[in-house]
Design a protein around this nucleic acid. Structure first.
Lengths: 260, 260
DNA sequence: CGGACCTTTGAAGTTGTTCAAGGTCTGTGG
DNA sequence: CCACAGACCTTGAACAACTTCAAAGGTCCG
């Protein structure tokens, strides 16, 4: 079931297609134009910047493989991770209307990705209204974790924040078929988790250990096994049982079907 | 200079047009179709829900007058305000691709607003690529405060969070011509400010009082006067000096001009 | 002028931070 | 194969920021 570090590389770009097919039937032509979004295929080592806050001329980033973080940093070094970027994520589809990047994007592991320029986005939108709507959907999907995250950091305890983050990432990894049966590989150190949850490294450690001691999760070398999903979700105040991806509004879907 | 509670109501819908004209020259036809977004014109009393988290069939909301909050609440009552909505804000232009609302929207003052259905959005996009791009731009503008907010709540002290929030709202009020020369009217109580900043009411109060005692701001009946903007911005780590609204990427602007 | 709601302040209590140090794991070079 | 270095994890103890509890003071409106 673990489809992670398999020796045979999965086709670049398959993650996004996997994800989209959960909400819309893609025509062969559409699959082709989505596959075109694997060129140019870029590779990046860990800790490389794919986008930098405030820099002009950024492109959207379609992630094929590997983990990255979307983050903001204050001058004195305090950093907030806004979101983790995993395969199939299309990072900032609205960058094409903004002059400068509103966050930094930095790889955590080795990654493969494709930069998508504003003009390419306009071509996609112009070429197919359905793909235009998909971009809107991807944008909406990119919003959701941010809002959940804000609620968590503003109003939840350390334990709740961690439980929620683990639930969210597990669900997202499921959506692109990268989960193991009882968890997922999360190749980040505790400093990153601290910067994501707005906690200190020390407190992240203590809290994770507590979740382990309670038999809810178990970690070994960056693989997170969820032993008691129900309990974890309860702590996380997770509304959706596992992964219930947002589906397209039926009216809109009907319209798009006609326009196809 | 204070254009707030003037006895002559400003034309509904003018705030959005004011805001858009800062980044693109609107043709008369476009102004007309934007003005069409004032129908149906709805009025709401304070504390009415315009959208409810998890409910299906929501529309986007174009705010003409008054203040509202975009928020999420846990079962036990803990609430996080994601953003304040002011005149000219177009709240959740991508709601049309999502089946249920991802947050609640509740009025704080008397408001006038217009619900914009998904099909109306599709018509707009189909009718004019420039308006389509404007929607993307509005979406991007809606994102920015959220990300700043996340950085603030995750990594800033109480004083910094409050300074930042005040700076942000002052800048946004300026963008739609609703500021006074030295500040703006912020008709919310300290409980709302607490729920926005992830603090307790008591601590919000103490921190605001400290800012006053230092001569940085001064409040009287919900009008916030900024006596020392430079100092406030320094505390807030505000990058942009006052309000530097994101402008449209020149390449994209050129393309849109052609497509017009 | 009474009541509801909001603001303000004090004092005690908690959660999470900081500082410090020891432990573990992994890769590298002798 | 072992020793070592560096990065990361883990734990304890002191400390700070913020919360909670409690109560008094304002203000606005009917």
């Amino acid at each position: 079931m673990a489809r992670n570090a398999s020796p045979v590389e999965p086709a670049a770009g398959s993650a996004l297609i996997t994800r989209l097919q959960r909400f819309i039937d893609l025509s062969p032509a559409e699959i082709l134009s989505l596959q075109a979004l694997t060129r140019p295929l870029r590779r990046a080592a860990p800790d490389e910047d794919l986008m930098t806050y405030g820099h002009a001329g950024s492109t959207a980033v379609l992630m094929h493989q590997g983990w990255a973080i979307k983050h903001r940093t204050l001058e004195d070094g305090r950093r907030q991770i806004l979101d983790f970027i995993i395969p199939g994520d299309f990072c900032d589809p609205c960058i094409f209307v903004t002059p400068v990047a509103r966050f930094s994007l930095t790889t955590v592991t080795h990654c493969t990705w494709t930069p998508v320029a504003g003009s390419a986005l306009l071509d996609l939108i112009a070429g197919s209204p359905r793909i235009g709507a998909m971009l809107w959907w991807l944008e909406a999907e990119e919003q959701a974790p941010l809002q959940d995250h804000l609620l968590a950091i503003g109003r939840m305890t350390a334990e709740e924040r961690l439980a929620r983050l683990i639930c969210e990432l597990w669900a997202r990894m499921k959506d692109v078929g990268l989960d193991a049966t009882d968890g997922f590989e999360w190749p980040v150190n505790q400093e990153l988790i601290a910067d994501a949850t707005g906690l200190s490294v020390v407190h992240v450690n203590r809290t994770l250990r507590r979740l382990e001691r309670q038999g809810i999760i178990q970690r070994s070398s960056h693989v997170y096994h969820i032993h008691d999903p129900a309990r974890l979700r309860r702590i996380a105040h997770a509304v959706r049982p596992g992964a219930a991806p947002a589906r397209l509004d039926p009216d809109i879907a009907a319209r798009l079907r006609r326009s196809h």
